[in-house]
């Protein structure tokens, strides 16, 4: 402190040559550091860190299997998995807080239309007649037997504006029902059954395992809106920042390879996969043991997205031009 005060009083501090020399040495050694780093990497291969966000539902199971069974490690990835409740919030965080995240076509397309640099990088689940995860459920005594009967009814949806509701609106439109004639209210999946029982809503947009629960309780399905979009159709997939995805094709290749390994493990070891499911979702064991697996498929192509872009455009939910062919960056 004394020295500092002295220099202040003196007006123009005179520097000794020693600090200058030290600074020069420091600069030189700092400049050499990046050159030394690859050498160190050559000795011990460093895993690529990946920050990944998922939603704790069965849809994202293969990523948890890949993590817990070491498939990410095997492919040189150091993956940190973070649970998020609402995947609609994820696109703006790509490249900032997360590298790869769970998403759906409406979320990606709407984000891209509003100018966010985000692309699809790998598939996760598809919906097809042979294996269905979504159903629209009504009470057996409701008099609702088909999509046409939904006119003027109250429909419970997990999120207005998200994939399942967009599909439902498309399904209504395709069935000749004005999508504006229904009233949609947001209800979390676990509460939907009680709302139907209490007569507060007429129909539920439900996903497994809740579909199975409601069917077992005696309620009935009047169809699967996702299949009205495409059959087989794209349901969920992984997204990343566009610039990052284009710069890291090798990382994406390893990501997909790990997911494929995990899918194979899941097919041959369902029991062990179900205990991983119970761990990540905290679902009761009885539910985790019985819930049907969705169809996992890591391929993703632009034509699958184009179908959804048309659906959104027809419903007037896509403001701004979107070129779906540029929204998929995935290694061939």
């Amino acid at each position: 402190m004394k020295g500092l005060r002295f220099f202040h009083r003196a007006g123009s501090p005179v520097r000794s040559p020693t600090p200058c020399l030290a600074a020069a040495l420091l600069a030189v050694s700092l400049a050499l550091l990046p050159a030394a780093a690859p050498l160190a990497q050559g000795v011990t291969p460093v895993k690529t860190p990946l920050r990944v966000a998922y939603v704790p539902v069965i849809t994202w199971l293969i990523s948890w299997v890949a993590k817990d069974r070491g498939f990410f490690d095997l492919h040189g990835l150091d993956v940190t998995l973070s649970p998020i409740q609402n995947l609609s919030l994820l696109p703006p965080t790509m490249g900032r807080q997360f590298d790869i995240a769970a998403s759906t076509a409406p979320d990606l397309l709407k984000a891209a239309a509003s100018g966010i640099d985000v692309v699809g990088v790998a598939g996760e689940t598809i919906e097809l007649t042979a294996n269905q995860s979504m159903q629209v459920i009504v009470r057996p005594d409701s008099g609702i037997r088909s999509v046409q009967d939904l006119k003027g009814k109250v429909v419970a949806t997990p999120t207005i504006g998200a994939v399942m509701h967009v599909a439902t609106l498309h399904w209504l439109r395709a069935g000749g029902v004005d999508p504006n004639s229904i009233r949609a209210i947001e209800v979390p999946f676990p509460n939907m059954g009680d709302q139907l029982k209490a007569g507060r809503v007429d129909a539920l947009e439900l996903l497994q395992p809740f579909v199975g629960q409601q069917l077992a309780a005696g309620n009935v399905s009047i169809g699967n809106p996702l299949l009205s979009v495409a059959d087989p159709g794209l349901f969920t997939f992984w997204i990343a920042q566009g610039a990052w995805a284009r710069a890291n094709p090798a990382v994406l290749e390893r990501w997909i390879a790990a997911l494929k390994d995990a899918r194979q493990f899941l097919e041959t070891n369902p029991t062990e996969s179900r205990s991983i499911l119970a761990k990540y979702t905290r679902l009761p064991d009885a539910v985790a043991q019985r819930i049907p697996f969705p169809t996992y498929d890591t391929t993703l192509n632009a034509s699958q997205l184009e179908v959804w872009a048309k659906v959104l455009r027809d419903l007037g939910q896509l403001n701004g031009p979107v070129d779906a062919s540029r929204l998929v960056v995935t290694p061939r």
Partner: peptide, 12 residues
């Protein structure tokens, strides 16, 4: 978050 997590995990 814990509240929503338990709701989704069927632990009312």
């Amino acid at each position: 978050y814990a509240l929503v997590r338990e709701q989704q995990a069927l632990h009312p």
